[in-house]
Nucleic acid binder design. Structure first.
Lengths: 154, 154
DNA sequence: CGCCAAAAGTGGCATATGCCACTAATTTAG
DNA sequence: CTAAATTAGTGGCATATGCCACTTTTGGCG
C-alpha cells in the first residue's frame, strides 16, 4: 500500500499483541484476584510446579524472560512464602527454585479460579480456536527473529 | 485431561500470550533502540499520530489500557518533549494530547526502524499469516469476557 | 597451579501497567 | 438553582520487565 488508510490501530504485530495481552491479562487477573495472585505470578508458580526444582536460568529461558526480570518477579513470591530457593549441589552459581507447601496450596487454590477463566475464554472463542491461537503464539515466540543489519559498529 | 503431561508450558491462553509478547517485544525494542524509543512508546506516539488530538481517555480506550497507566506512560514522552497536552475547550476535565514537532520527527525516524522489524517479521511468518494473527488478537482483545459468578463468598 | 573467559545471579535504574483513593469539572435530579 | 452522581485525570503503591554493570563460580589452559 503506497499510502492510504490507517486501520484503526496499527498494523504493528507487536502493538496488537500487547493490546491483546493487556486485555486478556485483565480478565485472568480478575479471575485470580480472590487468590491474591496476579496472572503472571500464577503462571510463574505453575511453571515451577511442572518443572523439577528448576534453576532460575531454566525458568527464564522457558518463559522467554530476562533473567534479572525473573529475579525481580520472584521476590514477592518468596517474600510471601510461596517459593524458596536453594543452591545447586554441583554448581554454587546456580540457584534452584521450588514451591513451599504454602505455595503448593496457593497454586491449587488459584488453579480452580484459573480454570473458570480459562473455560470462560474457551467457551467464547472455542477450544479449537484457542488451541490454534496458542500454537500460533508459541510459534511466534520461538521465532528466531534477527535484525538484518544488526547494528554494524559504523 | 485424559492424558498426561505438561504441554511444555501451559495451556493458559494468557500465559502463552504474555510469553509471545515478551519475545516479540524484545525484537521490536531492539529494532527501535537506535531511536531511543521503546516499542510501547512508539505505539503510543503512533496512536496519537493517527488520532486527532485525542483525549487521554480516548487513547486509553483505543489501546485497552488503564487510564492511570496511560498517564504514567505519557510522562517520559512529555518530559522528553515528544508530546504535549492541553485542556479541551468545552470540558476542562478533558486533557488532550498531541505530538510536538520534535515528537513528529522522532516518530518519523522510528517508523523507518519499525518497518524494518515489521517486514522482517512478516517475511518470517508471511504477511497473510501475520494479518490473520493480528485479526485473531484484535478479536480476543475485544471479546466481552466476564466472570460467571464473580466470586461468591463460596 | 594461577589466570582469564564464560556462566549465573544480583542490584540499580527506568519504563510498563494496574488498582485505589482523591480532586476537579460536569451532568442530572429535584 | 443546588446537591448527588458521574466523568476525567492524578498520585501513590506494587508488580512486571529489560538492560547494564558487577560479583561469584566454574571451566579451560599454559
Amino acid at each position: 500500500m503506497t499510502e492510504a488508510g490507517k486501520p484503526g490501530f496499527s498494523d504493528c504485530n507487536n502493538a496488537t499483541l500487547r493490546r491483546a495481552a493487556r486485555s486478556l491479562g485483565r480478565f485472568y487477573d480478575d479471575a485470580l484476584a480472590p487468590s491474591g495472585l496476579k496472572s503472571t505470578q500464577f503462571g510463574l508458580l505453575f511453571q515451577i510446579h511442572i518443572s523439577d526444582e528448576p534453576a532460575m536460568g531454566t525458568i527464564a529461558e522457558a518463559l522467554i524472560m530476562d533473567l534479572s526480570a525473573l529475579g525481580h518477579t520472584l521476590k514477592p513470591l518468596i517474600r510471601d512464602g510461596y517459593l524458596e530457593t536453594f543452591p545447586d549441589k554441583d554448581d554454587r552459581r546456580v540457584k534452584r527454585v521450588r514451591l513451599t507447601p504454602r505455595g503448593q496450596a496457593k497454586l491449587d487454590e488459584a488453579l480452580k479460579l484459573w480454570s473458570v477463566a480459562q473455560q470462560q475464554f474457551e467457551k467464547k472463542v472455542g477450544a479449537e480456536q484457542a488451541a490454534k491461537l496458542r500454537a500460533a503464539l508459541d510459534a511466534v515466540a520461538d521465532l528466531d527473529l534477527e535484525m538484518p543489519t544488526a547494528a554494524p559498529s559504523n
